[in-house]
Nucleic acid binder design. Sequence first.
DNA 1: TACGATACGGACCGCGGGTCCGCTTACGGG
DNA 2: CCCGTAAGCGGACCCGCGGTCCGTATCGTA
Lengths: 202, 202
Amino acid sequence: MEPVAERRPRKDAARNREAVLAAADDLFAHCESPEAVTMADIAAAAGVGKATLFRGFGDRTGLIHALYEARLEPVRIAIEAGPPPLGPGTPPLQRVPALLDAVLCFKLDNRHLALALESAGSSDSPYRAAHYDRWHRTLQAVLEQIPGLTDNAFTAHALLAATRADLVEYLAGHEQVPRERLRAQLAAYTARLLGRSAARRC
Amino acid sequence: MEPVAERRPRKDAARNREAVLAAADDLFAHCESPEAVTMADIAAAAGVGKATLFRGFGDRTGLIHALYEARLEPVRIAIEAGPPPLGPGTPPLQRVPALLDAVLCFKLDNRHLALALESAGSSDSPYRAAHYDRWHRTLQAVLEQIPGLTDNAFTAHALLAATRADLVEYLAGHEQVPRERLRAQLAAYTARLLGRSAARRC
DNA sequence: TACGATACGGACCGCGGGTCCGCTTACGGG
DNA sequence: CCCGTAAGCGGACCCGCGGTCCGTATCGTA
């Protein structure tokens, strides 16, 4: 019944964990489709036995989640405690587009990962993932501060849906839309939605 | 080099095809997750050998596509040649929300199918499917008719993203949002986006 | 009725996620 | 410094699923 002290892992275990994450990131980044990279591939690339993957991460989606969260952390911190326009203390009308732009940029920079995560099989809907919930709560909270809006929970979902990994991949990859153009379009879309809701009184 | 006459299939083949579609629809409808129903299950439920599935539909995604297109056809027809507010000849500002509502309702009524299709594995992005392209073209074309809008291709994607099957499933299933409320929220969202762009001049 | 073409079905295969168990290695106490 | 032990390792192994093959049954026709 002690507080149990949470024994820290052995040194080699930690080293292996890092090796696996690095190898997985690399493989996902260099392969066409996320499901083209198998667990055995990752284990081999990391110079490690397959069981080590499963012991360390539970299963395939656990591994992907761990990778994703690791890459996401800087963004999370910037949102929770960073300077404007991302951090708190930014006026809502600027923070909403800033949040969405951050999400979009993250997905552009980590297309392979986001894709691997969101297409991980429908057994775990992307909407039940912790990071989605964080983003949704944050966005909704900011929307609440803008007067004249309703149904902010839905609105937040709908806005985030515009940054879905496979859509981003389709537009940036298949349709070759340049990064800056995509960002501009999302910004314009957001602006139109927030509209003259509190900006310019008629 | 003849026009090849496209020999019609044998009677039992046609019957089996229908049996398979019916069985698959039923299984997808009654199972938790789309990937819980295997090809062998479908074959068994249809009283047919596995090879018959693959001969008739190519592969798993082919079968799901066939099912989806079959269920979708009435909606397609209503959009292409039906009466207002869905059909052509409707004023754009009413037709956009009508189109989105039709998509939403279809996905609500066919949650299992839409989910099965969109989570069919990332090898085939939902954005490369024929039906998505149809919807996107239609929606974009209608948006073009509304003055004061830009980036209509992106806007159409973003609006359609709000009706993604897994989002709909999450809201209607997990969050228990009632059907009419969802429809109203999507309508409000759309209306806000189209805003006073041509509705009410200040 | 007889015969070719078409379709059938279930045994079979390969592959990938996940597990098991005998061996190795880190690390704290003597 | 060495030893005991438990945490960690690895790859052979298992299982289930998508997809194929081929001998057999059925349809449609003359």
